[in-house]
Design a protein around this nucleic acid. Sequence first.
DNA 1: AATGAATGAGCCTTCATTCAT
DNA 2: GATGAATGAAGGCTCATTCAT
Lengths: 210, 210, 210, 210
Amino acid sequence: MTKREDGKETRWRLLNAACEVFAKKGYRDAKVADICKQAGANVSAVNYYFKNKASLYAETWRHAFQQFEEPAFSKLAGASPQERLREYILTLMKNFTTKGRLGHSSRLYLMELVNPTGLVQNDWRELIAPQRRKLHDIIREIIGRKADYQSVLFCELSIVNQCRTLLTIKHKDLEYLLDQSLGPELIKRLADHIADFSLAGIKAVGKRRG
Amino acid sequence: MTKREDGKETRWRLLNAACEVFAKKGYRDAKVADICKQAGANVSAVNYYFKNKASLYAETWRHAFQQFEEPAFSKLAGASPQERLREYILTLMKNFTTKGRLGHSSRLYLMELVNPTGLVQNDWRELIAPQRRKLHDIIREIIGRKADYQSVLFCELSIVNQCRTLLTIKHKDLEYLLDQSLGPELIKRLADHIADFSLAGIKAVGKRRG
Amino acid sequence: MTKREDGKETRWRLLNAACEVFAKKGYRDAKVADICKQAGANVSAVNYYFKNKASLYAETWRHAFQQFEEPAFSKLAGASPQERLREYILTLMKNFTTKGRLGHSSRLYLMELVNPTGLVQNDWRELIAPQRRKLHDIIREIIGRKADYQSVLFCELSIVNQCRTLLTIKHKDLEYLLDQSLGPELIKRLADHIADFSLAGIKAVGKRRG
Amino acid sequence: MTKREDGKETRWRLLNAACEVFAKKGYRDAKVADICKQAGANVSAVNYYFKNKASLYAETWRHAFQQFEEPAFSKLAGASPQERLREYILTLMKNFTTKGRLGHSSRLYLMELVNPTGLVQNDWRELIAPQRRKLHDIIREIIGRKADYQSVLFCELSIVNQCRTLLTIKHKDLEYLLDQSLGPELIKRLADHIADFSLAGIKAVGKRRG
DNA sequence: AATGAATGAGCCTTCATTCAT
DNA sequence: GATGAATGAAGGCTCATTCAT
């Protein structure tokens, strides 16, 4: 609450607030007034720091993704592709449901996937490229040496789209379906299911191709 | 121009127009003015016939789904579960990309999945229940006698979420990724992939359980 | 004050109000709120009838000019070019200072000349073409048979720019300069001066060329 | 970058920047941010040095006019009034189109004429008085001994308003009308026309009076 | 039964100005 | 003496909804 702080302070708060609000409401439904309010800033702050809502969004997205990248998928560097896939999926799904900053980032990321705004197209591919490459490597290892690009791509889509479950299905519905609250345990079970399901799927694709 | 016909006529045209516009733009981005224009009706027609936009949406959704149900999945009643699953997936994906009424309905349905409005919760479950039951049956047959409910549910989610690919990934991006335009052939290949992938996945789930 | 009238009623009032406000303040400084207020309409009325401020302006301009054209310069069809020029100038200057509709129109017209908005470019030339042609004819007759286009054009500019005096010099300043109030009499004197001045000028141009 | 120099330095740069921006955009469309940017100063500099935008404008106007006065009309002190009038007009019109400081000043001056802000009324008359006196003298000489004040005044208005042509008609339009680009040659021709036209005009006024 | 006119709340954006250092 | 951060009033536009017939 100290006034006239560093100057980067408010910008930072704005970015985090935007991250949260955009993640919760999506670009269209997020109001700059809400973001500013949440950041404890004036309505014009967005214009002052980011020119307009669209630019704020692009900046927020980059901001979020940089934070998103690091904590994930860093483990099990030497493990088998099967174990790494399982870890990858679990991390992905945990991120979606995390309450804090990482959760917002993940949701923001998926929001753009589901409701593309066209405002991050320039950065999109290069920012997610490293992530995708990791997954591609895993898939390629499981399929075997003959993996063609299209098969790898299709498998990637299959896996990622399964993981979206938690974002696109309202949690209440999921809980209703499963009659159990959406805690870490349920997420673990879902992640395990997707891992099992996908491992078999990838292998089948490999066999078909081989 | 033409004097108002039957009276229910306008209402019908509004529903069809709403179906199309909501399917294309989603609830939030669809404008009542556009819907009315498309229906050749007055701006106030929506409020006159349906009270407000939200009610129109709920009504439209029911309207669309009734039309959606019948034409789909009617074939291969006596075939093997594997063949029926493949057919189910192909039909689902074809529907998403169909141009006409069925396409609108399918996209409308998926729209609600991806961007839940909370406006159709009352009808949601009972309307899609028949569809889900068909898929459940297929999955249950493939898993075998010991299929527990949660496994069936998880497999359902895995399959349906894979099929969403076409809705959630912008077509341009998909074409960019695959370097090939989104014609019937590509859809067939995607559907085949999902079928292969999922069949193996379901079986794996069955084995784990068994 | 009858509500829900013809529908063209409000549009008409809006147009007249816009005419007045734009004429007084110019495009940039005129506020749609003021226009609507003056027209006794809601703020959104402009958007409803004219889409936006820019379109309203273009429409207003046409509206004003159509009214502007008819009453002016209709007299003295058979008189000498000298008499017709004198009449032309007097009419022009009277119009600029008229209080009512015609005055607004004239000022609006000159406003666009002095502060071009670029919003009426499409209609500009063709709308004022008839006016200009009348003046060109007069000038050409005075110059004589050898009148080249550029000379006519320059004379036109000389005359029109002199007439702008009343628009561009604040009336208070003019009164201060002349120590007399800006009534019909002063306007007559100014018009006579411009006529005398310009008649000699045109003839001089004719002689130089001849 | 460079540490603040003398202190009056920034103020000076602000005035020059303001001169340029106001001359190009006019008071209303000129943004203080642009002025500060152009002056390499902070946004608050304007308020710091000049209290507010209006005061900056008044100050700028004085600043510009002092620079404006000296370079103009200094030649031909002993020539005939006809030659001096021709020179006066040419200088005036050249100034309007000059690129550098003098051009800005001239345009700034005319801007105030065309779009009076009411912010320089106090200084206006005394600042332009010397200029006007020169022109009055020329006119009076041409008219002859009987020149009454009002005639001189009217002739002044006629001349000055003709010269405004270049400011009030957008250059593109002028080029379109004349089918020729606005170079020194065209300006010379215009100035010559105005001189010819006005000389004859003044004489006619003189005769009428005489 | 149906329509076109009219409304108003809400949103983003601009920009001169003030605050705190 | 000078600056960057931050503000707030105001304007234009969108769009679902209501009014009056």
